[in-house]
């Protein structure tokens, strides 16, 4: 750990520590190269994989909350069989899903639609996150204005001294 007193360090100054940047650059390289090399191979998915992908969005009809990909209930197996047949006949996943929805109702599909009122379930969290981030940024800006008057490092120092005084004794020598 650095023994530098924090108060004397320029904050995020961007110069004076170029030397110590090197390990971070190397680190970024290592991570980048590893992720590039570790990306899943891009071959076309097998029929089995495609069946599972579609089934992962379909509720297992006789279960309450499992997907047809997760369950081995007879109806889930039947759903996977139907998906397999559909894919083999060249149907698109959307066609297969709408066939299922035409028998069971829209709530057989576990991924809510992205359009219309139902799209709100996707949009609201994103909108909320943007608003919250904005509010946080605004708050930080206001706080920055509020504290720009005093020297915060000085305040830290005061706090330490105050606390030390309260706990009854000066610190010992540095080890």
């Amino acid at each position: 750990m650095s023994a530098t007193a924090p108060a004397s360090v320029p904050r995020f100054a961007g110069r004076g520590w170029t030397g110590s940047r090197l390990p971070w650059v190397v680190l970024a390289l290592v991570v980048g190269v590893s992720l590039w090399a570790g990306a899943a191979p891009r071959h076309t998915p097998s029929l089995d994989q495609r069946v599972r992908q579609v089934a992962a969005d379909v509720r297992c009809p006789s279960c309450t909350d499992l997907t047809a990909a997760d369950s081995n209930a007879p109806t889930a197996v039947a759903v996977r069989q139907t998906i397999r047949q559909g894919l083999q006949q060249g149907q698109s996943p959307a066609q297969i899903e709408s066939w299922l929805a035409g028998r069971y109702g829209r709530d057989i599909l576990l991924r809510p639609p992205t359009r219309g009122v139902a799209g709100l379930v996707w949009e609201l969290p994103v909108a909320g996150a943007v608003i919250a981030l904005g509010a946080l940024a605004f708050a930080f800006a206001r706080w920055r204005r509020a504290v720009s008057g005093g020297d915060p490092a000085e305040a830290d120092r005061r706090l330490v001294e105050e606390a030390l005084a309260r706990s009854g004794g000066p610190p010992g020598d540095e080890p």
């Binding site: 650095s2 924090p6 360090v9 995020f12 100054a13 520590w17 110590s20 390990p23 971070w24 490092a153």
Partner: peptide
């Protein structure tokens, strides 16, 4: 209150390398 960049970087270097090494 306030981060001194070199201190933070010094503290994070080993953990970050642990992460990178894990990925690699």
């Amino acid at each position: 209150r306030k981060a001194a960049a070199p201190v933070v970087r010094a503290r994070l270097l080993v953990p970050a390398w642990a992460g990178a090494a894990t990925i690699a």
